[in-house]
Design a protein around this nucleic acid. Sequence first.
DNA 1: CGTGAATGGTCCGGTTCTGGACCAAAGGTT
DNA 2: AACCTTTGGTCCAGAACCGGACCATTCACG
Lengths: 241, 241
Amino acid sequence: MTHPAGATHLPSVILRHTPGNPFETTVEQLATAIRLGVLVDGDQLPPERELAEQLGVARNTLRDAIAALRDAGLVTTRRGRGGGTVVTYAAPAPGSAGTGVRRGATLLDALDFRRVVEPGAAWLAATRELSGDQRSWLATSLRETSAATDPGVHRLADSRLHLAIATVSGSPMLIEAVTRAQAALGELLDAIPVLRKNIQHSHDQHEAIVGAILSGAAEDARTAMEEHCDATSALLRGLIG
Amino acid sequence: MTHPAGATHLPSVILRHTPGNPFETTVEQLATAIRLGVLVDGDQLPPERELAEQLGVARNTLRDAIAALRDAGLVTTRRGRGGGTVVTYAAPAPGSAGTGVRRGATLLDALDFRRVVEPGAAWLAATRELSGDQRSWLATSLRETSAATDPGVHRLADSRLHLAIATVSGSPMLIEAVTRAQAALGELLDAIPVLRKNIQHSHDQHEAIVGAILSGAAEDARTAMEEHCDATSALLRGLIG
DNA sequence: CGTGAATGGTCCGGTTCTGGACCAAAGGTT
DNA sequence: AACCTTTGGTCCAGAACCGGACCATTCACG
């Protein structure tokens, strides 16, 4: 801390604290999965014992988290054989601006981050040899995104498409990065004005991105994703000043 | 989980567990900061009460973590006014291949991730209006990297340079991403053969990167960093087969 | 030389998390 | 109908973590 020239800058930025106890982390994780459309209405969660192990948390803690989601109306639970916890979540009407404006710096950070990791994921995905399953998954996600008419459903489908791209990139660290970027922006994306022009533009870009990935044009995929990020970024920056 | 086409892929990848209790996380964080050269030999840690708050952890837990580092010989502690905990860490001789070969998939993942986030950080840094302090910090880090003759010291200086670039990008999320990439590769970078040719090549690339950042040439900075990552990536891939 | 400030060392009560055992409900199987 | 399997519901003892108070040591300053 004393000697070297730049040492005063680094540690304070690197040695940050990972906020959140297991309970809060678990709630956040499940809620994020639902809000991002990873788990959609009607999906069933794995059995508690199994999910607890998967999340690396005690079943008690997981149960508390599920109880919180239940109180929030995101899931319902039935017991007995064939029972379990099911997602019951009607996509919210956008523009409702739920939790209010968050700290601007955090959002600008997330926009910068997204502008790096999403194009990177698209680039990497395009360099992979994709399986038939993966190719059709991308195609399906693209189709579902453009088919969605309801704004809320559209947002979920959009998230799912972006996460699908990250997933086929095959890098777990990148997947997690994209997830975090989406989660950080999540609420804000609800606030994007749903003009036909915006949707159309967004869909054109999605098509370009997926097309480039499927044809293995890595640079094109990255460029297209960069333009896509810049477009939504411009819209969002306008909303927060 | 049941209905949609691709839903079987996503949840298992997204709903991962964040490993590590507070104690282990804290040890890991401090040890990483030391191994990456964020804290170098002779640096003093902040007072325990302060550092504990900064890390979001109880002082007891932090003390346990410091005790672990002390047992590992990374730091020494004196008490009383003017006392404190000081880093005592001689950079290890490379090629010693300390912990053995890790799982290949993890390393390939880290290489892919790094190839995305480091160029992204360089690009973003180049788009910023850098302060005089930041500009001279980059210059100093670059100079120290090229000046280092001892291989171990060189590796630390190299890490510091990369982290400095990430830091001046101004995005905390990106900084953390670069830190994780470096940490994941950390041990392996020790295994790079220290040939004069490699060092020289690496230094030329560093100069190109910093030069591009300082002159605001974002695309050049990214391209240069990409080449740099590809070069070390090729070396490392050769080592693990 | 004494006194105060800074810093690590120790301890304790309360809360959360864990890991496991056991209970209760619901649906399938014989 | 009787029984078994799957799944959520409940409880408990031990460990980890928190946060706060207090002790011990060292150095600077008057």
